[in-house]
Design a protein around this nucleic acid. Structure first.
Lengths: 249, 249
DNA sequence: ATTCCGCTTTGACAAGAGTCAAGCTTCGAT
DNA sequence: ATCGAAGCTTGACTCTTGTCAAAGCGGAAT
């Protein structure tokens, strides 16, 4: 096998056309030729180690990033060190959309496990969108979906009690994992209790206590970061009436 | 003056080209010809009486709306009647961006005073964006700005105490009024204490008490819906350290 | 001008979540 | 394998905010 072939195979492996996430990510609904055009614009996969920053608030914005493998958090930090986690992102999800408005990233993106991302240069996606209406349309939809997700988080933070927040959080994770073909009721948390708390507007002790309470009631099993949903229907019952069932994306 | 002239003048008066909000709203950065193209797409001003719904969650989405005059709230309602106000909108601001993702409106938009809106049919804006890159770009920026705004609200709801939330809210209103040429430190609230509370994740009694507390400290004057900021710097001091000074848009 | 309804204010009390602290477990580094 | 640091759990207590209730006020409609 020549170096040339190796490179080609490598490029192929990393292309959108060949990506298992293409039905979740940006290329939804593109035909073969359009996909090739998109491939030409997207920068090859980049590896980010656990704990590393993908970008930081205040840095110049040029690109968005799609999670290919791994897990990220995004957060806004205040001057005095308080941090608000604004989201947890898994494969196929986009980060950095908030940078478009001012050409400056508005939040930090930090890998919670060793991860790979695809870089989507905004300017090139934007101009490609003019040639490929379905790409433009889907990109609008993705931005809108982020707005809907944020509104649901606002509802969670504004209206719900600790138990309801935790239930909504667990069910949301469960649902997103299921979409990606993972077990819906048996998973490993990639984030700490403190990070969960920051996202949900709770202190880490409250998160811990509430998980313990769910376990005592036999609704879930907790073994550190390993969570099993034993009676997800009970969790659903907790949040029914809060909203149309799915808070947070 | 013939009927013909009257109609023309009327159309002119209602066009983007002639609108005093064109530097705040969608047409930012368009040249004369582009503005004319945009004018052709935007539906003439529509009047909405106080208390009326502009659109409701669950309705089919076809258009966004820009506030021309007046004041709106957007809110998500839960099955059991709880409501979360997700935003208050004044002239030049856009509503309905959350409908793009699913072609269904994700929230209610309700006029808080007699208002006028411009209807922006999404499909036509989208295709016009392909011909006018600066329109497309600005529309992306507006959607991104909405995401940034929502993230700031998340931070407010997740991290701040009642006093901090109220201070951020008053300063945010003040700033947006100032941009529009109104007095920054002397204004009329268009919404009830309950609506403020819903937006800020507080009960109306807490809103009322906190306003009274601010007044007792001599920082503001409250006469029902009439608010004067006497010492805005004290309010700013309250939230310094919470974030880069401006929560909520 | 009057009446009534809805909004607001204020108080007293309750409850949910935060704070502080101690001890434990696990995982990673050496 | 051992040690240490970080993360997690749990308890006791505090404090902020929510809940319930009553009274005042203003504005809109007649």
């Amino acid at each position: 096998m020549t170096d040339q072939t190796t490179i080609q195979l490598h490029a192929l492996k990393l292309s959108c056309s060949n990506c298992s996430l293409r039905e979740l990510c940006l290329p939804v609904g593109l035909n073969r030729e359009e996909m090739t055009q998109l491939d030409a614009v997207i920068r090859q996969s980049r590896r980010i180690k656990r704990g590393e920053y993908l970008f930081r608030s205040g840095e110049g914005f040029k690109s968005m990033f799609a999670v290919r493998t791994g897990f990220f958090k995004t957060c806004v930090s205040s001057q005095d060190g308080r941090e608000q986690v604004t989201g947890f992102l898994m494969s196929g999800e986009l980060m950095g959309l908030d940078g478009i408005s001012s050409n400056i990233h508005g939040c930090d993106a930090i890998a919670l496990e060793d991860s790979e991302v695809c870089e989507l240069p905004f300017g090139r996606i934007e101009s490609l969108g003019r040639d490929i209406p379905s790409l433009q349309h889907h990109f609008f939809r993705l931005m809108s979906r982020e707005i809907v997700r944020d509104q649901n988080v606002m509802l969670l933070l504004g209206n719900m009690k600790a138990e309801e927040r935790l239930a909504a959080f667990l069910l949301n994770l469960s649902q997103r994992l299921a979409i990606r073909g993972f077990a819906a009721n048996d998973f490993i948390l990639r984030m700490s209790r403190e990070e969960i708390g920051s996202f949900l507007g709770l202190k880490l002790e409250t998160v811990s206590r509430t998980l313990s309470k769910f376990q005592q009631q036999g609704w879930i099993r907790v073994d550190h970061k390993h969570i099993q949903l034993v009676k997800p229907e009970e969790l659903k019952a907790l949040i029914s009436g809060c909203v149309h069932s799915n808070a947070a994306e």
